[in-house]
Amino acid sequence: MNLELIVFLILAAAAIVSAVLMITRKNPVTSALYLVFNFFIIAVLYLFLRAQFIAVIQITVYAGAIMVLFLFVIMLLNLGEDKLLKWKLNSKRTIASLLGLLLLAEIAYYVMNFTSTSGMSPQSESMGTVESIGRVLYASYLFPFEITSILLLAALVGAIFLAKRKLEQ
């Protein structure tokens, strides 16, 4: 057991615990904060995989922008702990949890059969930097990159249109 593996296992355990806490908390603000914690751990795992640029994007866009949007909406709608939303075990939820376990078993079956012989690729050391990502992005993936701007514009217009509409009196 080397140090990297030990740190990975600690981070993985923290990620799983924070994800479980996220879906079991009653207060949506607490759930959102656990999800932010989870996103930070995943950003650290990206650094383990030498993907520095994606790790920074993960923190600024996911843990920053998207989760602030979530917290903003939760506070805008003034959602507290709602008794109607209380998590109690019924048949529907039991079936849903069993289906989730079945899905995990299916994925685990394929992951178990999957044997990786090689370690991390030597090219990956310099692959995740801003320079190399930028080179690939602007050379091979320029068209999808430009299309993304249209997607973001459509999302902007759609979000404003949907959120602006007033209640019909």
Binding site: A51, F53, V61, S124
Partner: peptide
């Protein structure tokens, strides 16, 4: 992506994060 040495995976994640940002804005609206 890191274990195969192919940068396409990181580019796909970049686009996935952009789509997720658009999706969360529309979803929350």
């Amino acid at each position: 992506s890191a274990y195969s040495g192919n940068p396409a995976g990181e580019i796909l994640v970049f686009f996935s994060i952009a789509v997720a940002a658009a999706e969360s804005a529309v979803g929350l609206a």
